[in-house]
């Protein structure tokens, strides 16, 4: 009789553990999903801001057509890939960020442009959007790290295996220009 109760007790504890671990995993997975949605919102915001920026800048920087086109192209490419995975998107968003950086660096050389109220407002919006992208990326990656830890660490890894939870993908933005040193030529 006593043995029966002990077995029953162990079974109940086991079931409670499985429920707890499963719910914990679902909670972490939802947090990752939510964090990803946050990044998405900010990336969309950047797509929306760029045409405005290009329009505003166009009138001032006559000789920088290539820079402007590069930004527009990078934006269109990134927007097209907006349903792709984190790794693919990271590459395209990195390219867009680099092109934008070049455009804003070019803008520094045009005092008239920098005095334009519209441009200043856009610049603040873009700076903030860039920050929001990196903060949401930061939060997303933290969430993914915690989720992956739960999936891979004992004992929750057993539950994760039973219900086939897949580990999350980190969102790394790779900026090609940042890796190689700037080229300086004295001619």
């Amino acid at each position: 009789m006593l043995a029966l109760w002990i077995v029953l007790g162990i079974v109940v504890i086991l079931i409670l553990f499985i429920i707890g671990a499963y719910n914990g995993l679902v909670g972490f997975r939802n947090q990752v999903k939510n964090a990803w949605a946050q990044i998405d919102v900010q990336l969309k915001r950047r797509y929306d801001l760029i045409p405005n920026l290009v329009e505003t800048v166009k009138g001032y920087v006559k000789h920088e057509r290539e820079t402007l086109e590069a930004v527009t192209n990078a934006r269109n490419l990134a927007q097209k890939a907006s349903s792709a995975g984190a790794a693919e998107r990271g590459k395209l968003e990195g390219a867009l960020g680099a092109a934008l950086g070049r455009l804003l660096a070019v803008a520094e050389a045009y005092p008239d442009l920098k005095a334009n109220q519209n441009f200043l407002a856009l610049q603040e919006e873009l700076t903030s959007t860039e920050n929001k992208i990196s903060f949401s990326r930061q939060y997303y990656n933290d969430s993914v790290l915690k989720f992956n830890n739960k999936i891979q660490m004992f004992p929750s890894n057993v539950i994760a295996g039973m219900f086939s939870f897949k580990i999350g993908e980190f969102f790394e933005v790779t900026v090609a220009a940042e890796k190689e040193p700037p080229k300086v030529s004295f001619t």
Binding site: G97, G101, A105, T127, E130, S134, V175
Partner: peptide, 30 residues
Amino acid sequence: VGAVGIRQASLSVPGELGLAPGKAAGKAAP
């Protein structure tokens, strides 16, 4: 939480996504 790096000051150095905002003095004044 694992190792966390310190970012650069946002005003003088391109940010993580390669964006270079305006200079410090230019931004503070307005």
